[in-house]
Simulated assay, not measured.
Amino acid sequence: MDLPPVGSSPFPYENLSAYYYRASYGKLSLTGETFDYTAKYERDYYTNNPEALVAEALAALDESEDLSRFDANEDGRLDAVYIHFAGPNTGWGSV
């Protein structure tokens, strides 16, 4: 199985695309773009309402990007969004 390029980080610290490709035994290949966004509030603010963070980030991104590029089936909705909240680990499944 040929893995996608992983840069300078070998297993198990490969990039997200390489991880999913490896974990799916070569059946899932992820591609996409990344964008930076700094949340308006501290992490605790979003704990009980992570949807607020998604809405806030997408609204800010929509001002500078054509998000329709990420609607492959043209149903008026983004096909996928992955948000990684940088900072210390606060437990499994936390925002």
Score class of each variant (00 low, 15 high):
L3F: 03
P4L: 08
P4S: 06
P4H: 02
P4K: 10
P5T: 12
V6E: 07
S8P: 03
S9N: 14
L16K: 13
S17H: 09
S17N: 12
Y19E: 08
Y21N: 11
R22A: 05
A23P: 00
A23E: 11
G26Y: 03
G26I: 10
L30C: 05
T31L: 03
G32N: 04
G32C: 05
E33N: 05
F35I: 04
D36M: 09
D36V: 11
Y37F: 15
A39L: 10
R43M: 01
Y45D: 06
T47D: 08
A52H: 10
L53R: 04
A55I: 12
A55C: 00
A55G: 01
E56R: 13
L58E: 04
A59N: 13
E65H: 15
L67V: 02
L67K: 05
L67I: 01
R69S: 12
F70S: 01
F70C: 00
D71E: 02
N73T: 06
G76I: 08
G76C: 08
L78G: 02
A80T: 08
A80W: 05
V81S: 01
Y82M: 09
Y82F: 12
F85L: 09
A86G: 01
P88F: 05
P88G: 04
T90W: 02
T90I: 06
G91N: 02
G93W: 11
